[in-house]
């Protein structure tokens, strides 16, 4: 066949949101989209995804496919792709996909075009370079299937122009041949370090600080601003990596996802790992010395200047306005 395989990922027993977005991306490439659900028990996932008008749904099922292992998923999907011969294989760009999709693509002599944020005629796929400062346009030129993963939020989750009353897609099974000896890693149960004591997700206002603050000794500057705003204090990853603020205050793909009414980004350049965690905020303010920093692409209001001057001035202005 030709067409598009979209590999859907399970999140807490359901199809994850970025998988719906990947299905939308797949449908923009070609009408003949096959949704693939994979695991040890895929019946309910298949039923869930079949609610969408699609070409068909394939259940790739094997007891060795839970819990997730890179080896298990790579072997099973390699067999499926050899059988289906798609033109495109589309993934949601998740931690799990990053763990196995590059190896799977390499098995077909292909390079995954990862973290795609848009597509144009050709097709040409856009992805970010240089921490989001530039965009690169990639054209697939291989003679095997083209593998791509799409960034969270880059495509709508809802199907465009879904024909009402369209027939449900047929669901079929694919049983990969897997042997326990082929699975070389032993994953443990997921755990959390400690009970989360800060729920940034429900905060109405957040002041978030990044590398621009330069030193832990400068943190009172943003703490004062947060106090003046009645806001929670948060940070981008490097601040938590350095131990200046606890990990639970981290916003971004490896931390919390937030959507407050007001998000003030101080000295944060806006790498994509941070943006995915906060771009749903209602009003975004960015304070950064670099006027070309990607944070200004998502900001509603920006001040390009030295945060060591701007932040105290803002704290004073807020106090005066109260």
């Amino acid at each position: 066949m030709s067409g598009v395989l979209v590999i859907c990922e399970e999140r807490a027993g359901r199809i994850g949101r970025t998988s719906w977005e990947a299905l939308t991306a797949g449908q923009r490439l070609n009408d003949a989209v096959t949704a693939v659900v994979i695991g040890a028990q895929t019946e309910s996932l298949a039923a869930e995804v079949a609610a969408r008008p699609l070409g068909k749904v394939i259940r790739v099922e094997h007891t060795l496919l839970a819990p997730y292992t890179g080896d298990g998923f790579t072997l099973a999907l390699e067999q499926l792709i050899r059988a289906e011969k798609p033109d495109y294989v589309v993934f949601p760009h998740t931690y799990q996909v990053r763990d196995y999709a590059p190896a799977l693509a390499a098995r077909f002599g292909q390079s995954l075009i990862g973290d795609v944020i848009g597509m144009a005629e050709g097709p040409v796929f856009a992805r970010q370079l240089m921490q989001g400062r530039l965009h690169g346009q990639y054209r697939p030129s291989g003679n095997g299937p083209c593998f791509l993963s799409v960034q969270a939020g880059a495509f709508p989750a809802e199907a465009a122009g879904a024909a009402a009353g369209a027939a449900s897609p047929a669901i079929s099974n694919f049983a990969p041949t897997l042997d326990a000896a082929q699975i070389r890693t032993r994953p443990g149960e997921p755990f959390r370090e400690s009970a989360q004591t800060v729920d940034l997700g429900s905060a109405q206002r957040i002041v978030s600080v990044g590398r621009g603050i330069k030193d832990a000794a400068n943190l009172p500057l943003v703490q004062d601003l947060a106090a003046a705003l009645g806001a929670e204090l948060a940070a981008s990853r490097p601040i938590c990596d350095a131990g200046w603020l606890p990990m639970e205050r981290q916003v971004g793909s490896s931390g919390q996802t937030v959507a407050p009414r007001l998000y003030v980004a101080v000295g944060i350049s806006g790498a994509i790992q941070h943006l995915v965690g906060m771009k749903g905020s209602q009003c975004i303010v960015a304070i950064n010395k670099d006027v070309e920093a990607p944070i200004f692409e998502v900001a509603d209001y920006g001040i390009s200047g030295d945060l060591f001057e701007v932040v105290p001035a803002l704290t004073e202005a807020l106090k005066a306005a109260q």
Binding site: Q137, Y138, P140, A299, G302
Partner: peptide
């Protein structure tokens, strides 16, 4: 390469940021 970097462009702003 099987994925050719054809061109590099500046990101297009999706939002209009008011710079103060």
């Amino acid at each position: 390469p099987t994925a050719v970097l054809e061109s590099i462009v500046l990101p297009q702003k999706k939002k209009s940021t008011q710079m103060l």
